[in-house]
Amino acid sequence: MTEDRKLDQDVMREPVIEIKGLYKSFGDLEVLKGVDFNLQKGQNIAVLGKSGTGKSVLIKIIVGLLKPDRGSVNVLGKEVNQLNAKELDALRLRVGFSFQNSALYDSMNVFQNLSFPLTMNFKKLSKAEVKDEVMDALEAVGLADKAKQMPAGLSGGQRKRIGIARTLILKPEIMLYDEPTSGLDPVTCTEINELIVEMQERYHTSAIVITHDLTCAKTTSQKVAMLIDGSFTKSENFEDLFDIEHPQIKSFYNYNFTK
């Protein structure tokens, strides 16, 4: 049974994230109960699960925003829990995190939102270089004309795109998407899904896509895993996962694709 809940390890490919026996609780509430998880280079994995099952907690632990109770989290060969602040910052430059609500800086316009992480981390870049980088990133997400706009004036889909552009501007090797299509209409969802695939092809990133949206999971990821009761189901191809007889998996499928 426990073996069923562990994800496949593809020994042919280099792992960029390796998680072993991860536990995390908040007070009396145990969220993650011995999670094992692997992400290989160039691979996208969609993580599904009910609200409150700890999907976002998992990716926050990966970037060191939350500390696990126990377990090992190895990202790009570094044990996250053992890094000092400087080492953690160096690792964070290699791991992009796209927030559920985009988390754009309200007080800055779109251009400043993108240039801020660049100028803070690469002080030797000239103004012209920063401008080129920002405009390239904005063009990549199709929003070059919004550079002077404030985040409050953007639509939900545009905010998500700018959030992704801000993350990609640091050229990360791994992308963590926290519910990239939540709260968006089907047309914008499709655009965001295409953008995630395009970004993977363009920047050769590996990614974890946290989502409730099975279309998003199917479009953006090669594998799908489901977090149930604090641990993962076996990592599967999209079709194989839904052959597993489990009420939560069935319920997920039936809600998204009514049989």
Binding site: K60, V63, L65, A85, D89, A90, R92, L93, V95, G96, F97, F99, Q100, N101, A103, L104, Y105, D106, F116, P117, M120, N121, R166, L170
Partner: peptide
């Protein structure tokens, strides 16, 4: 407070910017 609840402080942190200092 607003930056905290809208995850803007976390966004700074994951961009390798020390939000406490900034």
């Amino acid at each position: 407070g607003s930056m905290k609840v809208t995850e803007q402080i976390d966004a700074m942190e994951v961009s390798a910017i020390n939000p406490f200092k900034y």
